[in-house]
Simulated scan of single mutants.
Amino acid sequence: MSASTAATARAARPAELPRTRRAPLTAVSGGAAQRGSRLDVVRAPLRSKSRVPFLVLCATLMVVSLVAVLVLNTTLARGSYEMSELQGEVAQTAQDVQGLQEDLSAAETSLPDKARSLGMVPAENPTMVSLRTGKVVRGTDR
């Protein structure tokens, strides 16, 4: 090595810190010197927690929510069928009522003709009993 390379190498090294003297090591009471040179058991480092319980919880929530949606959908479909059946019954009842009203109006219009054919005559002065008062009322007094 030449003198210039040695100077460069010294300049490249960091400046050495002055060495300080350390205090001597001494045994502390309760240490290994009193117990013997026995090794102590040290607990293993903690591992990260498993993700399995979290995944099981998520899967359970998904299954429960899917079952709830299925039950809700089935209930709504059943209600829809019952509603359409009841609407059909209401329509049928409305048709029956309309038919009976037509029969009644036809009977009212044909009633005087049937009464004459049976020999009945209209009353000249009808007499009735008032249900409110219990008195006999003549048709002209109304």
Rank of each mutant, 00 (worst) to 15 (best):
A27I: 02
Q95C: 04
P122H: 01
R38A: 14
M83D: 08
G134V: 05
K135S: 12
A6F: 03
T26N: 12
R13L: 12
A44F: 07
R10K: 15
A59R: 09
M120T: 01
A91Y: 02
A32Y: 04
S2Q: 01
L70E: 01
L70F: 14
A33L: 15
L46W: 05
G30S: 08
L118A: 06
Q87V: 06
T8G: 03
S130T: 06
V69A: 15
D103A: 14
L55Y: 05
V52T: 14
G134T: 02
Q87F: 04
D103C: 04
A77T: 12
S50Q: 06
A33N: 07
R51V: 13
T93A: 12
V69Q: 14
K135H: 12
L76N: 12
K49Q: 09
L111I: 01
R51F: 03
E124V: 00
A6E: 07
S117Y: 00
L70K: 03
L66S: 14
L55H: 12
R142P: 00
L76A: 15
R116V: 03
D141M: 13
R21V: 04
T127K: 03
S65F: 11
L25F: 11
E82K: 05
N125V: 05
A32C: 04
A91Q: 11
R21K: 11
L46A: 15
R38V: 13
Q101S: 08
E85Q: 10
L104T: 07
S2T: 13
T8Y: 03
R116K: 08
A6L: 10
R21M: 11
Q34I: 06
Q34D: 11
T8C: 10
R47P: 00
A32Q: 11
G119C: 05
D141Y: 05
A3L: 12
E89W: 07
E89P: 00
P126F: 05
T60W: 10
L104D: 04
V67C: 10
V71L: 13
M1I: 07
T5F: 02
T93Q: 12
V136R: 09
S48A: 15
V67N: 12
L17I: 02
A12S: 15
V121Y: 01
E89R: 10
T133E: 06
S48G: 14
A68M: 10
Q98W: 04
D96E: 13
G31E: 08
M120D: 02
E89D: 12
T20N: 03
L46H: 10
V97K: 04
V28N: 05
L86K: 08
